[in-house]
């Protein structure tokens, strides 16, 4: 293959983590309320009720302590329409996003409205909370809002117009004194990216798929970089291609004995900086063989995986093994520590 003209390589990069958020006193009471099918607002010194709650008073900067119930019904103050919902949004069919001022609140909450069709949405429309069947104490305990034709509710829910599963808030204790208060939420965050490599890195990866290690020389400092890249010392792309041998010297290393999140190998293992013959910068890699005997200056060679599995990845080299040659003298690699 003509690797020089091949387009830069790109590949998916997916990241995912379930974030664990602690809530503190205000948000904790708010979430506890949601679990118990109550919406609470935060009252600031000026008497205004904020839903969602603020933790600190914007005017006085003091912590907010007073939470008051508001109604599960409210009025749309602004809206838009989503034809194709994205991953993680409240509904998987077309729906409206809306700013909703709940009865008894002075500010508006952003949430989804299950209105069926765009034509049903309008500013000023009345909506009510549709509670999730299973609630754990987070904002998604409100599954969404739905159009409501009943009269405005008082904050304690006593004039519920449409009794049923989504009717009045559960009677019971103030969430502040709830026996099992919510103190945290779990928020999964999953994102998909496309990672794009540079032309130089792509040529290096294509060479790897053919079992070759490719370096490039910086036109300014004349150092040979593996993999090729913009020379970080001079800020110019490396140009002249220089083949690099798959033998080298361990400059320094670490024995990893500890498991950690995101780890892909089972400890213990040795990660060493390997200065390949012909290169001016070491690469990190695994050393396997003669366990416990890895030394600074040890001579090593790449162990390639089965040729049939080679692709455009550094993983074609499984690890490095000691060659048994005499150790390189310290002076030969001391500039690379």
């Amino acid at each position: 293959m003509d690797t020089a003209s091949a387009p830069p390589l790109a590949a998916p990069l997916d990241i995912a983590f379930d974030y664990t958020r602690s809530l503190g006193p205000v948000l904790g009471r708010f979430m506890t309320g949601l679990r118990d099918r109550r919406v609470l607002g935060a009252r600031t010194a000026d008497g205004r009720v904020h839903v969602p709650p603020l933790e600190y008073d914007p005017a006085t900067h003091t912590p907010i302590t007073e939470l008051v119930p508001v109604s599960p019904t409210g009025t749309v103050t602004s809206w838009t329409w989503t034809d194709r919902p994205l991953d993680g949004q409240p509904l998987d069919r077309p729906f409206g996003w809306a700013l909703i001022r709940l009865d008894g609140a002075d500010t508006a909450l952003l949430h989804a409205v299950d209105a069926g069709a765009r034509e049903s949405m309008r500013t000023g429309m009345r909506v009510r909370v549709r509670w999730a069947a299973e609630r754990s104490g987070d904002i998604r305990d409100i599954a969404c809002f739905e159009p409501d034709s009943g009269p405005p509710h008082s904050p304690d829910g006593t004039t519920s117009g449409a009794p049923g599963t989504n009717g009045a808030p559960a009677a019971g204790a103030d969430p502040a004194t709830s026996v099992d208060p919510v103190i945290g939420i779990v928020t999964p965050i999953r994102l998909s990216y496309t990672h794009t490599a540079s032309a130089e890195e792509s040529r290096y990866l294509h060479a790897l798929s053919e079992g070759r290690l490719l370096g490039q020389r910086c036109p300014a400092c004349r150092k040979v970089y593996v993999p090729p890249r913009v020379c970080p010392a001079d800020g110019v792309p490396t140009e002249e291609e220089v083949p690099v041998r798959d033998h080298g010297t361990v400059t320094t290393f670490c024995v990893v004995n500890v498991p950690f999140a995101g780890q892909r190998l089972e400890p213990p293992y040795v990660v060493a900086q390997v200065l390949l013959d012909g290169a001016d910068i070491p690469i990190p890699h695994l050393i396997i063989g003669q366990a416990g005997d890895v030394r600074m200056g040890m001579r090593v060679a790449a162990v390639w995986r089965d040729r049939a599995t080679w692709t455009t990845t550094p993983e074609n080299i499984a690890h490095f093994r000691p060659t048994g040659e005499p150790d390189a003298p310290y002076e030969s690699y001391q500039e690379h520590l």
Partner: peptide, 25 residues
């Protein structure tokens, strides 16, 4: 405690070898 720093720092971009050693490593 909202996540795990080691996880966040160990995200492996494509085209790299899976030889992460962690912050101490």
């Amino acid at each position: 405690s909202e996540s795990n720093a080691m996880w966040a720092l160990s995200i492996q971009p494509p085209f790299t070898a899976p030889i992460g050693a962690g912050a101490g490593g």
